[in-house]
């Protein structure tokens, strides 16, 4: 039971909160860790900056670095005009980053291991791009699907390719984050489970558990990297997609 690598992803209902139609909505472990992510983000970006110090404390410095990292990524990728999406991009980055890192602590829950969450976040970006792109550029937005300087006979083929690649964006955007987090947690759980299984066999088993234990430690470090990297990858892809909404010509 303890070694079941799938158990950690189950949604557990803690207590009922409200009803939507006939559906009873419970407060769940997923909701709890979303709240933890929001709470920690607010503690860092709001709590640690309440001093408004000219010479920052360590935590205020960390908050400023997070702000600058996202602001610079967005500005360099999509230009100054994209800064109107800065609250969205910063929220995405901090939400995914904090929930991923918190999820690495044993017995916690990782919000991004559910495709519905990553899909909702990716679709938020997808529809933001489409709605803002059309609102800002009108029909000009659809130039996105026709690279300039292409011979006429190639246009139909390229439009289909570009359209497909555009439509598949939310899929790759969401599945990348989901699959990375899911696979990492399954691997960690399996390898760590070996340690327990070996340990229960006897003296020889305890000796044999050294290798999976070392691997667990190494994997934890790797997963920490993946957790941070995937949050950044999701963010930078968001910036690249927003750039298309602002500058649709190729």
């Amino acid at each position: 039971m303890a070694a079941d690598p799938i158990h950690q992803f189950e949604i557990q209902n803690y207590f009922p909160v409200f009803k939507i139609g006939a559906t009873q909505i419970h407060f769940t472990n997923s909701a709890l860790f979303m709240a933890v992510a929001v709470g920690l983000t607010a503690a860092l970006l709001i709590g640690a900056t309440s001093g408004r110090r000219l010479v920052p404390t360590r935590l205020q410095s960390l908050a400023e670095m997070s702000y600058e990292l996202v602001a610079n990524t967005l500005r360099n990728t999509a230009g100054e005009e994209a800064m109107r999406f800065f609250p969205l991009v910063l929220s995405l980055f901090m939400f995914i980053l904090v929930s991923n890192v918190v999820g690495l602590i044993p017995y916690t829950f990782t919000v991004a291991t559910h495709i519905i969450i990553t899909a909702a976040l990716a679709l938020t970006v997808f529809f933001t791009v489409i709605i803002y792109g059309i609102w800002r550029n009108g029909w000009h937005f659809f130039k996105l699907f026709l690279p300039s300087g292409i011979p006429g006979w190639m246009a139909p083929i390229l439009i289909v390719i570009e359209l497909l690649s555009f439509l598949s964006r939310p899929i790759s955007h969401s599945v990348r984050l989901f699959a990375n987090m899911l696979a990492g947690h399954i691997t960690l759980k399996l390898v760590a489970g070996f340690v327990v299984m070996m340990g229960s066999v006897g003296a020889l088993g305890v000796f044999g558990a050294i290798a999976p234990l070392a691997l667990t430690i190494a994997l934890t470090a790797l997963e920490l990297l993946v957790a941070v990297l995937q949050a950044y990858v999701f963010t930078i892809l968001t910036c690249i997609y927003l750039n298309d909404a602002i500058h649709p010509g190729h």
Binding site: I25, T28, A31, A37, V38, I116, A120, L121
Partner: peptide, 16 residues
């Protein structure tokens, strides 16, 4: 579980 997850995500993400 999708409905509950989406609702909680909406609440917390909009809050954030």
């Amino acid at each position: 579980t999708f409905a509950s997850q989406l609702i909680w995500l909406a609440i917390f993400f909009i809050g954030l």
